[in-house]
Structures are given as C-alpha cells and as structure tokens.
Amino acid sequence: MSITDKLKNVDALRRFVKKCKIRYEYMLDADVFCKYYMEESDKREDYEYRMLMFVHNIEKGMCMPNPRPFGKEKVAKLMDMIKACEKEERYVNSSAYKMSISILYQWVLFYKEHGWNDELMKMVDAFLANYGTDMKGMDVGYKIVQKQELTVNGNTAFDEVIKTRRAVRTFSDKKLEPNVVKECVLLAQAAPTACNRQMIKIYQISNRENCDIITDTIYGASGFTRDTVNYFVLTYDVKSLDYYGERNQGYLNAGLVAMNLANALHSRGIGSCFIQWANTASEEREVKKHLGISETEHIAVVLGAGYYADEMYIAKSCRRDMEEIFTSR
C-alpha cells in the first residue's frame, strides 16, 4: 500500500483535506462571481443581462395594483445601455436590445395612460423617435388575464400546463385545501434528487404572522396580496452533501422539486411566483428560527402561492430567441 493510500485511511486527515478542498472550491466560485457579476460586466459594457433584468423590473412596476410613477432610474440607464450596445452589431441583433427599446415604448404609453406627464417621459419619447415601429414591437409590458385563461384540468396536455403557467402575485381569499396541497407535494416529490437522497423539504406557511415575516424579510415580495398569499419554503439539508463537487447540488435539487411543485399547483388552479432566497446568513437564521427549520437546512427558494384571483395583472416576460440559448454541436 502506497503512502498516499495509507494517509487516505486516516479518517481525521482525510476529513481535514476534504474540508480544505470544499473551502478552496467555494473560494474559486467566489473569485469568478466577483470577476463577472453584473456591475463588473458593466465596466466592459456587457449589459445584456442587466437589460433583461431592467425590462422585467419595469414590467413588474406595471403590474402593481395601485401603480404610481416608477422606474425612472432604470429607464434612464436603459437608454444609456441601448446607446452603448449600438457600438457593436452583436448587441444590436440581441433580444435584450430589442426588448429594451420596446419596454421604453410601453413605459411611455403607460405613463400617458395614467396622465403622468413629466420631463423624463418627454425625453424618452424623443429618444424613441429614432427607432421605427419594428423596433418597438417585442411582446413586453403587462397584460390583464382572467382566471379561466389559466385554468387547466386533468385532461390538459403537458405542453399546455407548461405554457399556460404564469407568475402571478394576486390571489383569491380562498384557503388552500390540504388534500390538494398534499397531491401537489406528492407530484413535486416525483422530481429526481441526487442518488435519491431526497434532501428537499417543503414548508407550507399559511399563518398570517409567519407569512408577514417572510414578506417583510425576503427580497422581491412586493406586489403580493399580503392578506391572501401563502408561502412554500423549500430547503435542502446540508447533511446530504458529500464532497466539494456537490456544493451546488442542493440548489439544483431544490429547483427541480420547486418546478414540479409550481406546475402541480397550476394544474389545480393555484397560482404561484418564484422568489429566490437572496438574503444574508443572519436573516436566514432568524427566519429559520421563527419557522422551526433546522440549522442544517438551507433555504433555497420560496414560492408565493394562492388560488387564482378572477383577474390578474401579469408581466409578459418575453423570451429570448431560441438561437440565443441553444447550440447543437
């Protein structure tokens, strides 16, 4: 037996080396994140993802139940980004560039419809005069949908379940039926997990005090009907992970289960909206303590959910061209 093999048999040493590798790989992840995250990309005038995010931010502003003038800072930045993109042909042909022009056009229309006549709106209107109608026609903005438009049933084809599900933040006051929720959880549980370790747990939060804690803590909860929203908190158990190569495994598995859950809820007439858990470690500790979640579990994603309201405002959430995301080699 070689010296290396003998050392591997020393449990304390092997665990120490394993922990060092885990920390090292996380550090490399952090290095890449710090090098390429959005603000750093902006320095290289690589705006595509920020533009897509701003487009959706403006769409969400249009979906608020009692809208007020909004989005001015993002609109101003979008105009600057559009100008920067026009320096390179590859950006001018991108969906992000076209969506950005279209959302500015929709933003101006939205302001005019609400009688919000300010200086920035006039500047954007003048800016858009440089572009033809063909550049303003991407399917962005918001729309009003009726409950029946999102209704599916047991005979609905899988394709239609996927295509008709939309992120919604307005729910009826009908309480979620326990037997229906359990049916959906069973369908969510059918999602694959690494080596069938089933490390994902689902917590339904219906108590108003607990819901308020999540609403007040999690980033991105604005727009939910506070009195009717339920939350499904999905966690993964760190105890299930084995080595540095699995450092992202929990989020992958939580995502698979969450998507099954969202589609299952939709198939039962229950709308939902994904909210990433982007909070600090201390905020997570406080929420987990209040909800009675073990410290070995990480919150991965949260779904705001409830039965569909009769009428809802939703973001159009235009998709990029398939050629931009798919490559066959």
Rank of each mutant, 00 (worst) to 15 (best):
G292Q: 09
Y307C: 04
E39M: 12
M53N: 10
A188T: 11
L291A: 10
E297R: 07
N153P: 08
E246M: 04
N66D: 15
E283T: 02
G115D: 08
G61C: 06
F224M: 02
V168S: 09
L252A: 08
K175G: 05
G271Y: 01
G71C: 07
S294Q: 07
V32G: 06
G141S: 09
Y203Q: 05
T327S: 10
M81E: 14
M123N: 13
V75T: 12
Y251D: 08
S294W: 05
A315D: 03
G306F: 08
R14G: 06
R268V: 06
T235P: 04
L265N: 05
W277M: 03
I299L: 01
C63L: 08
E73L: 13
V32C: 06
D125A: 11
Q146G: 14
C318I: 00
K316Y: 00
I314Q: 00
A129F: 04
D125L: 05
A309I: 09
E45D: 12
A84N: 13
M51R: 02
Y203N: 12
A188N: 10
G255C: 07
E286Q: 11
F70R: 08
I218V: 09
M62S: 06
K8P: 01
A12S: 14
G220K: 02
R197G: 08
I205G: 04
N179L: 11
Y47E: 13
E177T: 11
G141M: 05
M121E: 13
A126C: 07
K74W: 01
Y219W: 01
M312S: 08
V75P: 08
Q276G: 15
F326N: 01
R44W: 12
M99D: 13
G220S: 05
V185T: 05
M259C: 06
M64K: 13
I213P: 00
V229C: 03
I22K: 10
L104M: 06
S100P: 02
I213T: 07
D42N: 14
F110P: 03
S172D: 14
K83W: 07
T280K: 12
Y231T: 04
K43W: 12
V302F: 06
M259A: 04
R90A: 11
R285H: 12
I101L: 15
L78G: 09
K163E: 14
Q276W: 01
I58E: 05
E48C: 04
K60E: 02
E160M: 13
Y47R: 13
T280G: 11
R23L: 15
R329M: 10
K83I: 13
N260C: 02
Y49M: 14
R268K: 15
D310V: 01
R226P: 00
S317L: 03
D31V: 14
E284M: 03
A129K: 14
Y236V: 00
S222F: 09
F110S: 00
M1K: 10
G250T: 03
V92E: 15
V55K: 04
R166H: 15
Y91H: 14
L234Y: 06
N230F: 02
R208K: 12
V287D: 07
N179S: 15
Y37N: 15
L234G: 02
E323R: 14
F326Y: 13
